[in-house]
Design a protein around this nucleic acid. Structure first.
Lengths: 351, 351
DNA sequence: TAGGGTTGTTGAAACGTTCTAACTCCGTCG
DNA sequence: CGACGGAGTTAGAACGTTTCAACAACCCTA
């Protein structure tokens, strides 16, 4: 059963192998690993040598089985590659690292079945906490999946019940800020590009814009409903706008995200008779296009990405110590307007 | 010690709780979970009921400790949000799921220390396999980190030794394809935009382009070295090109990636005297901008993203069954040219 | 009816840690 | 000089699962 010092070690080295080589007890090695200073100098040196020699790596399964708790938290999102989630996860990861927790990511790919598989996996792993940006309205299956004692925080989505925390962004306010900015610039024919309205973020931003427009006499809001929210969708709408008689064109456009805004700008900027922002001002949303997609810097609504992720982990940490029944915090961030040349200043010509 | 049927269960239900409630042995429950059909109908029904009632979820730590092997594989990349890695991971994930393995992602954020922490984590977790897109030249620390028996496959990077497999892309060929395409169109003043040359991909693509240009008499290659490889970098170079006398401008531009190409296009398309591709043809690399960043569809070099990820997992699977010392497969994909309007056809005017 | 399969079920021993309580030295204090 | 305390160390019992050998009950065939 027990391996001797002479024969080569088959699997990876265990605590017991280290103990044998160092000539001390297993318990002492364990205690050295967890509290090095609690172990006497001579033993420490021998243990150190044995660990290095054997390349000992603790077996997390055994450790976790015994301890009953893991040091891992997971972030399950429907599109990990998305710029927003990518930077949220970065913030979360940093905060987690500060607490000695590791954050792993899982991409549910927009599929409920995949999401469920991952929730099951992490349930079985007994991860300490879970950040969830769900594919759709999360039904009851959080319970079924072994996450009863795992704390869950919802990302960019109000939690389905008070039993879970959430971190989200006030999209109504964001929509209001964007529209109000255009109105302040004197624009009265506002267009909203985005869709479908079934997406909460899309609907909320529209609502905020509508509220702002309603408060200004003489202003009107035209809604361009799109199926997708990508750059081509923006281009399509912009082409339609270009085809109109100049007097019928909007003089201010608010796009539900920066991708659409980029498409709109690409088309408008190539039109010989239209100048941005003189004739049409454009506002985006998310502030991801800052350095990326457009020739002239895009005015946009900035969401607190990193802070968002950090706060999500903060909520988890709170919940680790809170009682089972305590109701969870629902944190809502306020977005802010970042003004750039697509609404203010000259449309830069080619120098 | 043992919990009775009456008192509420404190922690999550264990196999033992299920067994007690169903009135059978622990072993039978275990065997039901792993091979339901091996268990008699009456017991099966009772176990089923007990599992549902108690909400039993197997404890993966215990299972893994006993089994000695995990069903998890990990993908550690220096930027999980990057479009390329995002779709590679999607492919890997699908393939892994087919084999009943779960893929989790970890973002090393371009930092060696973070990368190392994750490698340690997954080493301790004894993950079955690891896909690694390393921050820098991977030194020896793969051994130190407990991955001795974990199979490792390098992503988009030749493996540092024959002991590891790798999946990468023939960037020299990609560069050659791009330049050859421009040359075939009759372009002779070719520009290469990209940098720094210390990045292998950048250097390889340049090398390929240089080879192709050298084979055509009268053709020359001008290199614009950039620090970054993003859209603003492309715009900067394009501005410089626009400022030149028309006769000194390149008539074909090959960009080291689509982001740079997008920036170049944005600027060129707004210039009154330049038409794309008539005056200047533009080729990108990666084929991610297909739907995203530019008004006219971009000719690009397409890398096999999903297949790439799938193959990486295939290599892992092979290595699971191969002997420890067997040398690993190094798979190199050939990229292909996708011709679109930025080099062929009309530059679409606003309709 | 005895013997030999099947089929279904079980007890107990692992797996590699952590943790508690107890033990052994030593030096110090009363 | 004996009791006390602290530092260092250890044996052994968990943690929740899987697996293996063995057992029980049954049906079938000889």
């Amino acid at each position: 059963m027990s391996r001797t010092l002479d024969e080569p070690i088959a699997g990876p080295a265990r605590l017991r192998d280290v103990a044998e080589r160092a000539g001390v007890s297993i318990a002492l090695v364990s205690s050295y690993i967890n509290n090095p200073h609690k172990v006497g100098g001579r033993s420490a040196a021998k243990i150190e040598e044995a660990i290095a020699f054997l390349g000992f790596i603790p077996n997390d399964a055994a450790r976790q089985l015994r301890r009953g708790v893991s040091r891992m938290i997971a972030f399950v999102a429907f599109d990990v590659g998305d710029a927003f989630f990518a930077s949220v996860s970065r913030g979360a990861q940093r905060r987690a690292a500060e607490e000695g927790l590791s954050l792993v990511l899982a991409d549910s790919n927009g599929k409920r079945s995949t999401e469920r598989e991952y929730l099951t996996l992490f349930g079985e792993q007994r991860v300490r906490g879970l950040l969830l940006a769900p594919v759709a309205e999360p039904s009851s299956y959080l319970d079924e999946v072994g996450l009863r004692q795992t704390r869950v925080v919802f990302i960019d989505q109000p939690a389905p019940s008070q039993r879970y925390g959430s971190v989200s962004i006030n999209d109504v306010l964001g929509g209001r800020l964007a529209a109000a900015h255009l109105l302040e610039l004197g624009r009265r024919r506002i267009a909203y590009i985005g869709g479908p309205a079934s997406i909460r973020q899309v609907a909320d931003r529209l609502r905020g814009a509508r509220d702002a427009v309603r408060e200004v006499p003489g202003a009107r809001l035209e809604v361009f409903d799109t199926q997708d929210r990508d750059t081509p969708a923006g281009r399509d709408v912009a082409y339609a706008i270009c085809r109109r008689d100049p007097r019928d064109r909007p003089d201010g456009i608010f796009c539900v995200n920066d991708n659409i805004a980029a498409g709109v700008l690409q088309v408008l900027l190539r039109h010989p008779d239209i100048r941005v922002p003189r004739d049409i001002a454009v506002v985006g949303y998310n502030d991801i296009a800052a350095d990326a997609a457009s020739v002239i810097p895009l005015t946009s609504i900035k969401q607190p990405h990193e802070a968002f992720g950090r706060t999500a982990v903060d909520l988890l940490l709170e919940e680790f110590v809170a009682s089972e029944q305590a109701s969870r915090r629902q944190v809502v961030f306020d977005p802010e307007l970042v003004i750039r040349e697509s609404t203010a200043g000259d449309a830069g010509a080619v120098p």
